[in-house]
């Protein structure tokens, strides 16, 4: 396993993703999501919004890291707010 050169932050990141996926599965099992239309131009289920959110968050991080002086945690904060907005009203 040592060739995978794990670090604490990346291990945390992947555990986070795994936890979110597990959480979504359980949530879906107990209260199934219904497709609906929010401010996004297409109707989405909860899982679709999660995927869109994660992908756009990745781009938000790249934008902050690449083209601004802000610390990366600022991007994480912005992404977190964006995720909540998207999951609730998207």
């Amino acid at each position: 396993m040592s060739w995978m050169v794990w670090t604490l932050p990346t291990a945390g990141f992947f555990s986070g993703i795994a936890l979110i996926l597990a959480g979504m599965t359980i949530w879906q099992h107990f209260s199934p999501s219904i497709e609906r239309k929010g401010f996004l131009p297409l109707s989405t289920t909860r899982g679709d919004r999660l995927f869109i959110g994660l992908l756009t968050s990745a781009y938000i991080h790249l934008g902050f890291v690449g083209f601004t002086e802000f610390h990366v945690l600022v991007a994480t904060g912005v992404s977190a707010i964006w995720m909540v907005v998207l999951m609730r009203w998207g």
């Binding site: 060739w3 995978m4 050169v5 990346t10 990141f13």
Partner: peptide, 20 residues
């Protein structure tokens, strides 16, 4: 994919000599 993500945040010389 996980390995690539791990590489991307480090300066890797080999499995033991690497810097975050």
């Amino acid at each position: 994919l996980m390995t690539v993500v791990n590489y991307s945040v480090q300066d890797v010389f080999d499995a033991h000599t690497r810097y975050f």
